[in-house]
Each structure stands twice: as structure tokens, then as C-alpha cells.
Design a protein around this nucleic acid. Structure first.
Lengths: 221, 221
DNA sequence: AAATGTATTTTGATTAGTCAAAATGCAAGT
DNA sequence: ACTTGCATTTTGACTAATCAAAATACATTT
């Protein structure tokens, strides 16, 4: 069985492979895992000999099929646990990330299956992030529309928050821009770099463009 | 923060101090933790310098006040988690021990408090073992009556199972001698070493004396 | 009192994961 | 092409936890 450290390296690699078209640079893992570069090199080499990663020297790493399967399993645990903590134990939406970070390595598949069933097999966690199913299939996440690029004056629903830092989550919480919330972009001004939004309550919110890019929206449904 | 290994040593010491009047021999820890004797000596010395245990050479160990507080915290996590797995997630009563063994080191006090509240602050886990409260106070467990020494022909209630091995739990499950069950001792024969019991259903069960000593009973209430 | 047997401790080695700091390779800019 | 700067790798060392096997202490029996 993979140690928690190995699971963390796999998960970090998985979470970075989109934005790095496949090969994840060592620096990304250094940053994500909070260790010094030399440690990543050592770990990555060890994991490569175990067949979990491919290591291209001075380039970065790629997940092997086995590594990806394990990483998806960890991600599934993380996101189901987060959902459970929020929905069942009524924990604060913005404080569950670190809790899940610890629990994802201790929850067995047996317990996970019970949690999944208990929650009614959800497909997204409280942040709107897709939850891989038991076979490791995850909803396609490419081509998502954010408040940075959405239609104007159209009623939308927030579906996902792309930044999980406590500060940002607290801000989202405060403004009500949480997954599920009704929102409309009333004006987008590229020159001044801001997006003007309106909530169902009539409340008006102004966001900078890079911040707007962190709020994924979809059709009302 | 204590590592899971340290937490396991502390918990094992706590669980053995009753039956060893205070000083727990090294061999008990060897057995409980499944390591070789030399490992226990090394760990115990390290923990003694950290102020968690007192080590009397060639005698055994004693918990310090700090060590006991930590051990009670771990025991509380273990038993609340077990209760949660059975009551909320409907897991099998006899399979939750090992799950709790892993989760007890990953559940934060914040999560534990939510679980405790969610469950309505239970005072005993599914096996009837008392759950320490948040201040580390645990119900007195001495002077418990078991089927080995109980009154004859008196309606009793099973309150606790003192053996948590999967085999024994499966047996208890099968016979229905679970905590909460109605039971009556119809005859006890010291010579042949057996106890004859009767369940509410009229079903008759015969137990050997050492086995009867593992089933704690109390008044019906 | 000597011998025996068992529990415990010591010693030396191993594995996983880490850091510090020096060495190396590579891409860009001049 | 040369240099500069940054990312990565190497090297040597450290901690936590473990085992194997030899050494030691102690209680019990003879």
C-alpha cells in the first residue's frame, strides 16, 4: 500500500497535469508539497522505480496508468470526505480542506463506499469540484465558462470555485458566490479589468478579471 | 504533535494499566503493538524523555499525567469513530475496530466535536466500552459483573463485550449477546466449567467460564 | 547456592522521508 | 558565443521507527 507521502505526490501530480499539458515540472511539486527541490527529486525517482511515475530528467514527471488510478482514488476520497464534512457534519465550508487532507489517507475503501452511499453518490464536492467515481472516471472539466468569459445579462448558476485557499473561500462565503448561487454578469470592462455582477438578492459585486476567472458558471437548469 | 506510533503506544499503555495495577510490562506492549521487544524498549525510552511515560528499567512503564491525557484523547477518538461508523454509516459491528484504528489518528478535535454532537454525546461505543468525555473523564469500569459471576435466574442486560477480536465479535453477533440484549443465567456449574444462559427469544446458550467472563451485564433498567 | 528459563536491554543495521548546500544543466539575453 | 539566472540533481547527513541477534538481569526451580 502507498504511504500518505506517496499518495500526496500522486495527487499533486494529478492536480497539475492539466495546466502543464502532461509533464509536471519538479518545481510544481516542490511548491505543492512544501518540501525542498532535492526531496522531490529523490521521491520521484523512488516512485518511478515503483512504476507510479515516469521521470524525464530535468523536465518533470508524468503519471503512469497505475499512478493515475491511485491518484484518482485519493482525489475521490478527498472530495467525498469534504462533501461529508460539510453536508453531514455541518462543518464550515471553508475549513474542511485541511481536514480532508488528513482523512483522505486514513479512510478505507470500505468506509468510503458507505460515505458515498450515505451521501447519495454525489458528483461534485462543496467547491463544485468533480468527484471521480469508483472506477476512476471523472467528469470532463475542460472548456468551463467562468465569470471572466460568460455571456452578459444572462442568469447563471455558480458551479465551481477554482481557488481553495482559505482566504478566497472566506470571500466567496461572504459574498454568497457559492456553488448553486444565482448570478448575472451585468457588465464586463476589459479596460478597467473588472466584472460587475448581480446576485439574486439584487446585491451588486465587482470583481477583478483574474478573480472572476476563478468562478465557474453554468446554465441555470 | 504526537505521531500515530506514539499515540498507539500511549493507548496500549492506557488499556493495560488496569490489569497490571499501574505498571505495564514491556511484554504487554510488545504483544499489543506487534513489534519486537527491542523496539518497545527504544520507543519507550524516547517517550520517557518526552515526558509521556515513566520507564522503570526491567519493570515496565507508567503513564505520566500528560501521557494519560493524550491516551484518553486517542481512546475517545477511537470509540466515537467506532460508534459513528456503526450508527451513522451502518457498518458491521464487528468490522469497525480496524477502521477506527486508522481513523483515530487522522480525526482532528474539531471533527471529533462535530461527530460527538451529531451522535448526541454517547457515553459508550457499540461494544459497550465507555467513551471518555472531552475533559478526559471516563466512567468507572471497575467492579463490573460478568456472566461468570452474575446472579442466577435474574433478568439482566448485556452492557459490554470485553474481547474485541473479530472472531469473538462474530460469535457475539451470531448468538445475539450484543450490548442491550436481554439475558438470564439459568445455571452455573463450576465443576464442568460452563454457564447456561437463556435469551429473550427462549434460545439457550452454553458458555465456558472464561468466555462468560468477557460478557459484562447489568440491571435491566 | 547453582542452574534454568524468560523478559528485557543493547548493539548494529535498515527503510522512508526529509534538509542543507554544493554541483550541474539549460534556456535566454546580451 | 558567452554569460547570467533559474531549475534540477547530487551528496552527505539526520530523524523516526523498525528488526535481528547477542547480551544481560531476574525470578523460580532444583
Amino acid at each position: 500500500m502507498a504511504t500518505s507521502t506517496v499518495e500526496n505526490y500522486l495527487k499533486a501530480t494529478l492536480l497539475h497535469e492539466q495546466e502543464c499539458d502532461g509533464i509536471v515540472p519538479m518545481g510544481a511539486l516542490v511548491e505543492a508539497l512544501g518540501v525542498v527541490p532535492g526531496t522531490v527529486t529523490t521521491m520521484v525517482k523512488a516512485m518511478a522505480t515503483q512504476g507510479l511515475l515516469e521521470h524525464e530528467s530535468r523536465q518533470g514527471v508524468r503519471l503512469t496508468p497505475i499512478g493515475r488510478a491511485l491518484a484518482l482514488g485519493v482525489l475521490r476520497k478527498h472530495r467525498l470526505v469534504e462533501t461529508f464534512l460539510v453536508q453531514t457534519l455541518k462543518m464550515d465550508w471553508s475549513e474542511v480542506h485541511e481536514e480532508a487532507e488528513a482523512l483522505e489517507h486514513a479512510v478505507s475503501n470500505r468506509v468510503l463506499e458507505r460515505i458515498d452511499e450515505f451521501l447519495g453518490r454525489p458528483t461534485a464536492d462543496p467547491h463544485g469540484d468533480p468527484i471521480p467515481d469508483a472506477t476512476g472516471t471523472i467528469a470532463d472539466t475542460a472548456a468551463q465558462v467562468t465569470l471572466q468569459g460568460s455571456a452578459i445579462n444572462k442568469a447563471l448558476r455558480v458551479t465551481r470555485i477554482l481557488d481553495q485557499t482559505p482566504d478566497f473561500l472566506a470571500y466567496v462565503q461572504e459574498t454568497g458566490l457559492k456553488p448553486g448561487a444565482w448570478v448575472k454578469v451585468v457588465r464586463r470592462d476589459e479596460t478597467s479589468g473588472v466584472v460587475h455582477c448581480e446576485m439574486k438578492t439584487g446585491q451588486k459585486i465587482t470583481l477583478g478579471l483574474p478573480v472572476a476567472a476563478k468562478i465557474v458558471v453554468g446554465a441555470l437548469v
